[in-house]
Design a protein around this nucleic acid. Structure first.
Lengths: 356, 356
DNA sequence: TTGTAAGCGTTATCAG
DNA sequence: CTGATAACGCTTACAA
């Protein structure tokens, strides 16, 4: 019932009647020129399969001075997974891209800031001697530096901290947000409100700026009350902001909402008040994570999450596989785009009339 | 710019002017009785901190013959968390519980059956010499056996395969489903439809049986057309099933839906046809994963996901930490319960009248 | 109280 | 073409 000691390359060697080194050479494929006869090669692979041999990765990592592992540190949880769709998608795509590149991913999750503050998760990745690390919106610059200091290649995604030697891959919201405003304006909307996060983070500020600029370009006025910022709790934040907007004397006809989770809350507020989407209110979300699953399927500003993930992996792989070369940090910026679905329509009284 | 070799316990030792073994003893805390003087202890810990020493886990695992890692193999991906809510929650709770128990979790994900079939993920966990494995609805019994054969403790969650030596933690749907039917019946519903998966899996069969039995107990008839089974794609499956039910001449007044994702699709179909929930149609979902975020917040049969996760970890920990003892497989069954929210109401013409 | 040394399972560098 | 052999960084008897 208890585990007999796991089978080692030595066991395989003994069974074939060959040295352990030969087993290693055979099993590592075409490395170090083809020096083994076809006959022994076959006997070795057969024996390995028969015994169910699986190389001990820890031993290999120790010897090779390379773990073959990329660490992934997603942003801290808020509430439930359903309120953090982007890190989830990143996780999926990073794992896939890494496997294609011959790496494995170890993802460390903390459900709270405190759990993370202890540093146990970071310490775990350091202890595993990960070959590279991907941060999604790191908690602090200090976390990032832990790796940089040790010469571990790091790439920060989406909401980077300013750390000199770390690469970043971010998304430029301008094209998507301008596209969204253009789309709404073309439909005839002139009362467009914005639901977003506080301006504390430059990324959020950037989105807001893009929105304000897009309105200005089209000479669309923007009352102060149309800017709903500083939301903390995702779904509930969207709900509250929408309630506030609906109570306004001059209610907006369209909402630009900085996240699918926020949009979920907004939809709820609208349903409750019987404000139909898109008939009475148009909605555009940001993320395009699960926007297509909602009813109505939401027009959304799409972040190229998959491309970001793939780029992150190839960027790390290049640094890992040629550690000797100088690798100045790269700063990649990827574009956003608009996906039009069923949540946008001309505003209520514009059905047949001015398109302006 | 390139990584100087990572700092080892040897480096720490040299800096303090003490043997490497002493460093190891100090840093492993109170293990192997207190044999080091307070003075050297302090100098060692100080030096370790100063140098930023992090033990090389691979080396430790090699020596200790224990990785300190629990593997988690969630069921195969479907797109977003909204289509696979349960494994997502399991992941969160397993990671938390493991950390509390002094373990780390490595979770391996495949976005498709093919990616998994290659066995690279399983091979990775075997190679890491995980101390134990948690499967969430394993893909095949063969996967599970790979670990059992090697004496690695295994626990299968929710949808186990019949593998002799593996423990299981499952959920009994009866209490929750009977509770749901009782709740609907008490509200006056007599036309209750069921949206679920094919009967291929015993777990799904069990849920269906529970539903049929609950109806029989209350002498509520169940037309064949009210059983919508064999759905494959989660959100879309719920949508299609609901459309079919709405087209029936004798339309149901309540839906019992075997998953939050299915319910998401159902809600969409209902919104599209302007069937108001709960006024014109009552809905109960199964899972209670994100049921509370939808509008209206759904009455739902709750699976004790967190308890399942915690139990899985403690079960494994017991086996890992006392490998010598005989550990017959355990088969834990946990109960479900009903959470009443806003998606259930008396059926349309029963507002004031017969309750029976 | 501390140091020495063996060995965990690999890979890689040598000779043969 | 193949076999010794020396690390990799750590834990743990055992010796001093």
């Amino acid at each position: 019932m208890t585990s007999a000691r796991a089978v080692t390359s030595n066991d395989v060697a003994r069974r074939v009647g060959v040295s352990q080194a030969t087993v290693s050479v055979v099993l590592n494929g075409a490395r170090s020129n083809i020096r083994v006869s076809e006959a022994t090669r076959e006997r070795v692979t057969a024996a390995a399969a028969a015994l169910g041999y699986t190389p001990h990765l820890a031993a290999r990592a120790l010897r090779r001075q390379r773990s073959g592992i990329i660490g992934f540190v997603p942003r801290i949880f808020r509430q439930t997974p359903y309120e953090r769709p982007i890190p989830y998608l990143l996780s999926v795509h990073i794992a896939r891209a890494a496997m294609l590149g011959g790496y494995h991913v170890i993802e460390v999750n903390a459900e709270s800031s405190e759990a993370r503050a202890g540093g146990a998760l970071i310490e775990f990745l350091l202890g595993q001697r990960v070959d590279g690390v991907i941060f999604d919106a790191p908690d602090s610059a200090a976390e990032v530096r832990r790796f940089v200091e040790r010469g571990v290649p790091v790439v920060q995604l989406l909401r980077p901290h300013p750390v000199a030697a770390a690469s970043t891959i971010t998304v430029d919201p301008v094209a998507g947000i301008d596209g969204a405003v253009a789309h709404l304006a073309a439909l005839g909307h002139r009362r467009i409100a914005f639901i977003g996060s506080s301006r504390a983070n430059p990324v959020d500020q950037h989105r807001l700026d893009a929105f304000v600029a897009a309105l200005a370009d089209r000479a669309i006025p923007i009352p102060e009350a149309y800017l709903q910022l500083g939301l903390t709790r995702a779904v509930e934040g969207g709900y509250d902001a929408t309630e506030t907007l609906l109570a306004l004397p001059d209610r907006p006809t369209a909402l630009l909402i900085m996240g699918d989770s926020l949009a979920l809350g907004a939809l709820r507020a609208l349903y409750e008040r019987d404000v139909r989407v898109p008939n009475a209110m148009s909605i555009v979300s940001y993320d395009d994570a699960f926007a297509s699953f909602l009813y109505p399927p939401l027009t959304s500003v799409a972040q190229p999450v998959r491309e970001v993930a793939e780029r992150a992996v190839t960027l790390l792989a290049a640094r890992i596989e040629d550690a000797a070369a100088a690798h100045p940090p790269e700063h990649v910026v990827m574009p956003t785009g608009l996906v039009v679905r069923a949540s946008t329509q001309p505003p209520p009284g514009a059905r047949e009339g001015e398109t302006k």
